[in-house]
Simulated scan of single mutants.
Amino acid sequence: MGNFAVMVVSKGKGSGAGVGGHIDREEKWKHTYKHADPTKTHLNRSYPVPNKFHDVPVPIAINRVIQKGYKKTRKNSNELAPIRKDAVRLIKHIFTGSHEEMMKLAADEDKFFEWQKACSNFLQREYGKDNIVRFVLHMDEKTPHIHAITVPLTEDGRLSAKEIIGNKEVLRERLDRYAEIVKPFGLERGLRYSGTTHETQQAYNARLERANEMAMKKEVPDPSKMDMRLKPEKVKEDFQKIIRDQQMLINMAQRSEEERKKSKERMDQHLDQARKLMFSAQKEAKDYKQLQIAMRNPKFLETQLNAVLEQRNQRNQGRNKGKNL
């Protein structure tokens, strides 16, 4: 008993740099995976995803998905509608199971690979293969698990995590579908609790630890008799931390956007100046070429000389006229 199938789904705002750094094991985000065993990091595996988004940082991959698939337009216009600054730009997914069962599964290389493939196929069916930017197996933590990131684009090109993730009933049905595909691997549908929308990595780790403890017992407690009440202080503290983290990511994204705009303005100024210099050089070259051609003609020199003499005569006549007065 207690061979639970675990699927965690959570929304993500900001650029996705933090979760991307955690998944890709970037050095500067090392504080997000302190519990990972560096001697096992080489066992992690990043799987290729469509459009080679796995080859670029997560924030860039997310932007490319949006640039390619975003089609929402302003009302009564063909102009693209601006994306809200607080829009959910990514959905985070974790696929795993109870510790003991996952370790047994990982020991069977072929079966373990089939589980990973089943999770990948499930993700593609549920969220669209072109919206996947990461699908990574982590083996350097206590329990083997898969991290995945998708962009919440609807079929008609809108950015809507609310519509993609759905309500509680939709989530329960999705969890049922996931539980069905992992049954052949010894994993079963656990408590009908999704841990969705705003569950942090820390909360997930704690919940998985509780599931592991339950799995080690001979009997699983009856959920109907469990105390599911939450401590208000702890909930408040968790949400305040989430808000701070999200605000930090939003500020980073805003600063990045401001720098991008300033850089574009400077580039436009340089381009304008370069165009003016180019047009001026072209005009001077054209005038010089015409002068060269004209100077080869004797009549041109004669005409220029006559013009100079005529101007001199006019000046002399002016001076003489002044003296007579």
Rank of each mutant, 00 (worst) to 15 (best):
R125A: 12
G128A: 00
A5H: 00
K168R: 15
K117D: 02
L159K: 00
R45S: 11
E141P: 02
E141C: 00
K111E: 05
K162F: 08
E302M: 06
N51D: 05
N167T: 08
I60D: 12
V58K: 02
L90K: 04
E237H: 14
Q116T: 08
E233P: 01
V151N: 00
V56D: 07
Q311A: 13
A285N: 13
D108N: 05
K283Q: 03
R210A: 14
A253Y: 00
S15N: 02
N3S: 15
Q311W: 12
M295W: 07
A294H: 07
E109A: 15
L105I: 01
Q202W: 10
T150C: 03
L309H: 09
G190S: 10
T32H: 09
I62Q: 03
A211F: 11
M267F: 15
M102P: 03
I62E: 02
P298G: 10
K13G: 11
Q124K: 07
D245E: 10
A106V: 00
A294V: 05
K261P: 00
S224Y: 05
L175C: 08
L271T: 06
K40G: 10
M216H: 07
S46F: 09
P144V: 04
P38L: 09
K142M: 08
D238S: 11
S77M: 01
R177G: 04
R275F: 04
T32R: 14
N63L: 03
H147C: 07
Q292G: 10
M216P: 01
L191Y: 15
N316V: 14
K299Y: 15
L291T: 12
K52I: 07
P59E: 09
N44D: 15
D287Q: 13
N63P: 01
A17M: 02
D55M: 13
D140R: 01
R255A: 15
L191C: 12
E213F: 04
R45F: 14
K323Y: 15
I132H: 00
I165K: 05
N316E: 13
V220H: 02
F112L: 05
K236N: 12
Y127R: 02
N320A: 14
Q273W: 08
E259S: 06
I94V: 15
V182T: 11
N167M: 12
K71D: 00
I60M: 09
Y178R: 03
R64D: 04
A61Y: 00
V58S: 06
K13Q: 11
D268E: 10
G318F: 09
K75H: 04
T196L: 06
K111G: 01
A106P: 00
I293L: 09
T96I: 03
P50I: 13
R229F: 11
K225Q: 12
Q246M: 12
S224G: 04
K40R: 14
N3V: 10
I23V: 04
